[in-house]
């Protein structure tokens, strides 16, 4: 059914101590149902663990869910670890509770997209497909 084509691979990560996983589970199901391969890290990961897993799994996208307010710490660490691994072609997107000013700051740092509370599942799928297409083949 997919001879030749590479499926989009996404790692869904919960970083830090926040255990809210309602959103990541809905997103994981949605992406799977859209035909993607989804790797879930489980809860309470460090940014470095997530990047190591993303490199080994050769994902297109790292999706980070964070509701604890620690996003201004977590995202820069992920971006730095990707750079250190020569892996900044792996796209970083995020979701959770993030204030508008922080969203703008994170995007200027290199976070590709942020999808907050109540984003319809179909929009998340479309966003992932769009950023992967924009990046081009690798």
């Amino acid at each position: 059914m997919d001879a030749g084509g590479e499926r989009i691979r996404v790692i869904i990560a919960k970083v830090g101590l926040d255990g809210h996983d309602r959103g990541v589970k809905i997103v994981a199901r949605t992406l799977r149902d859209a035909g993607m391969d989804v790797i879930y890290t489980g809860l309470h990961r460090t940014p470095e663990e997530v990047v190591e897993a993303a490199v080994q799994e050769d994902v297109d996208v790292i999706g980070v869910s964070i509701l604890s307010g620690a996003h201004m710490t977590v995202f820069p660490r992920i971006l730095a670890a990707l750079k250190a691994r020569d892996a900044d072609d792996i796209l970083v997107v995020g979701g959770g509770v993030i204030a508008d000013d922080d969203c703008a700051a994170l995007k200027s740092m290199g976070v590709r997209e942020l999808m907050l509370q109540d984003t319809p599942p179909a929009e998340i799928v479309a966003m992932i497909e769009r950023v992967v297409t924009e990046r081009g083949p690798r």
């Binding site: 830090g16 101590l17 926040d18 309470h44 460090t46 604890s68 620690a70 201004m72 710490t73 977590v74």
Partner: peptide, 18 residues
Amino acid sequence: DMPTLMGYDSDHPMSDGE
């Protein structure tokens, strides 16, 4: 805060940013 809820001291690496 999350570190207290999860039993980490404030200077534990997992507490960074929280």
